[in-house]
Amino acid sequence: MSAKFRLVQYVPDPFVGTKITIGALVEHDGQVELARAPWVPGPGCIGGRKAWSTMQLILDSLSTPARFDLPSGELSALAQLGEERLVPAGVGSAREWLEAKLLPQKPLREQDQKETPPYRPHRDTVGYRFFEQWSVADFVKRKYAPSSLPRTHPKAAASVSHYVPGKDELLLMEPVVGTRPKFEDDLQAISQEFLAFRELFRQMSGPHQTPVFIAYVLTGGYSAAMGEASRVLSRAADQVVNVDDPAQRTLFLQRIVAVGSSGGNQGSLPLPRN
């Protein structure tokens, strides 16, 4: 007769409803035992030390289970027991099989074990990735911060993320990533930066090319990003481009190539890769 199991899930906050699989009750030949998940999340992931301790108490209470048909929620309202499932035929030890094959495992790589979220890429990194993807990165330089310009304030007109120097035009470009947590702060910062550079250029009568301030918007799925960027940057930017829109993107990429080429940059030949 096949062994049966029921998943044991811990619900640290019943109002949120997050379930964490922490083990399974196993029944085979009338014997009931607990299969423990080889890995469970730490306190930081489930709401703190007390929540974590409760989870351990639940596991401890089930360590010698009296019955397989224990009603869900009887041990604790935060301990749910799932429906009966069959262990596949041919499995030797059901408990060992569950612990090795089904229950949550400790991630193998160290970076996957961290409880603190990794840093997300900077805005300019995401923006440059866009240029790489669309094969114009050879024309785009990073960090426009010419030493010839005076520094009136350390935070004013520090640098522009990306630029394309041409014969007659200088494209000064800032990426706008719609899904960044500080999206509105980003827009304000870009606005100030563009306005500061405009003022510097006016005072210094430079550069020799016509500067064109462009914000290019990667919505990331936040459809209002373009509208908000256009509103905030209406005075500061010459152009706000939605690069998720194929038509706008094509024109933008063509302009980069045209301006970059005019400045003597030949880019790279699109050689076929075989």
């Binding site: 993807q133 799925g221 690069v243 998720d244």
Partner: peptide
């Protein structure tokens, strides 16, 4: 798939 992911797909071939 969503269109805004197009910029970041690496296995284009």
């Amino acid at each position: 798939w969503e269109a805004h992911h197009a910029h970041f797909v690496t296995n284009l071939d």
